[in-house]
């Protein structure tokens, strides 16, 4: 079947199978920024935004984004570049397989909260697993970024 949606504000049309998930469809079409960590909607690495809301693309049937706006990290390059500075400052970038997911979840967090509390930040990013850093450096980096990028 044909699937039409907006990928980073550009209309695209992909040929898909009805039972395919968005993560696979995007990767198959060259969007290699999608990192599939678990393929069972449990780790957060494959986060994308669908109509500005964070969604795990490995658990979303591709057909569901028909006509919608999908944002991947390619759509927020400048922001990801800046967030990477803050991650670098805190040494929060190790294997970075989770980093793209963090860039997108932080983008959504910024849109949803003006001045999030520590608890709100943690609640928001709790589904994004990182096995390398122990989270504290990431948390500090995200906090500093949110403060200065207001």
């Amino acid at each position: 079947m044909k699937l039409r949606f907006y990928l980073n504000n550009v209309e695209v049309e992909y040929e898909i199978q009805p039972d395919e998930y968005l993560a696979q469809v995007l990767r198959r079409n060259g969007v290699l920024s999608i990192r599939i960590g678990c393929d069972e909607s449990a780790c957060g690495s494959c986060t994308v935004l669908v109509d500005d809301k964070p969604v795990l693309s490995c658990g979303l049937l591709a057909a569901k984004v028909e006509g919608k706006h999908v944002t991947t990290v390619e759509g927020i390059q400048e922001e990801a570049n800046r967030l990477a500075d803050y991650f670098g400052d805190e040494g929060a970038d190790q294997c970075s397989f989770c980093s793209v997911g963090f860039a997108l979840i932080v983008h959504a967090l910024r849109k949803e909260y003006k001045n999030p509390t520590d608890e709100q930040i943690k609640d928001y990013i709790v589904g994004n697993i990182c096995r390398c850093t122990g989270y504290q450096s990431q948390f500090k980096a995200i906090k500093a970024y949110l403060k200065e990028a207001k």
Partner: peptide, 21 residues
């Protein structure tokens, strides 16, 4: 001294850098 990872930016920006890519 504080030095950023040489690869952190590319990874967060989603470049094709891992084996599957």
């Amino acid at each position: 001294n504080k030095t950023h990872s040489v690869d952190g930016h590319a990874e967060m920006m989603g470049r094709a850098v891992y084996t599957q890519d």
